[in-house]
């Protein structure tokens, strides 16, 4: 199947097994620039695996993933890593901030990995931290800030490289609903303002409500609700 017209990232017939467990069994996906797509489904349905495949973290056993006209599964590990550094951003549920680095250093980290100088990277990091209202935490270490603040720092980090696609895996999973909503608001606002696409894995309807549309993953198969309706 050719990728849907105008799509930035699309996947077709993805299959991925972890040992005897079939995590993905013919999943499909596509997203346009500036679009927020929620990936929903019960635990163990393969949501996270779909995200990992789409982001080029895990190569699928079979199927195609096309990003911006390039075939992801044809790339080497190093190429995919480079792509993730330059074009993608990531937010996870927890355990993603380096505990030894200060918040601003954490945010600057992806830029530094791309070879940006420390000063420049930290300046860019700070401006993103301001947008996410956590610039007063710059000197603090992740252990010294609250969960909601930490998650905002993580969102700032995921956006600091101006990614074309932002992958968020249960970004509010460890937060109370007030903090979770605030993080979602800031995340989607920031993504819209930079025209980034957001792949949002969540099992919470209230978080999924921040998306433009949702796809449902069940037993390794995906269902694009927009095309169905």
């Amino acid at each position: 199947m050719t990728p849907p017209a105008g799509s930035l990232l699309s996947a077709d017939q993805l299959r991925k097994a972890y040992g005897p467990t079939l995590a993905l069994d013919g999943a499909e996906f596509s997203i346009h620039p500036g679009e927020v797509v929620a990936v929903m489904g019960p635990s163990g349905s393969g949501k996270s695996t779909l995200l990992h495949c789409l982001a080029g973290i895990v190569p699928p056993d079979s199927g195609t993933i096309t990003y911006n006209g390039r075939e992801l599964s044809a790339m080497s590990d190093a190429q995919r890593s480079a792509l993730r550094r330059s074009d993608f951003g990531f937010v996870f549920q927890f355990g993603q901030l380096v505990p030894e680095l200060t918040c601003v250093e954490n945010v600057a980290l992806p830029l530094r990995l791309n070879g940006t100088s420390r000063k420049e990277a930290e300046r860019a990091a700070l401006s993103w931290m301001e947008r996410l209202e956590v610039d007063d935490l710059r000197k603090k270490r992740p252990g010294e800030v609250s969960g909601g603040q930490g998650q905002r720092v993580a969102v700032a980090r995921s956006l600091v490289t101006n990614p074309r696609v932002l992958f968020a895996d249960e970004p509010t999973g460890a937060l109370d609903s007030l903090n979770g909503e605030r993080v979602m608001e800031l995340l989607t606002d920031a993504a819209r303002s930079t025209n980034a696409a957001v792949v949002l894995v969540t099992h919470e309807a209230r978080v999924a409500a921040y998306s433009d549309r949702e796809i449902v993953v069940r037993d390794g198969k995906s269902r694009d609700m927009e095309r169905v309706v």
Partner: peptide
């Protein structure tokens, strides 16, 4: 029956999006 549920979810989410 899953279809029924999925369609309903989609409809619910649409409402939720508007509310959000």
């Amino acid at each position: 029956a899953a279809d029924v549920l999925d369609t309903q979810r989609s409809e619910h989410l649409r409402s939720m999006r508007i509310l959000t």
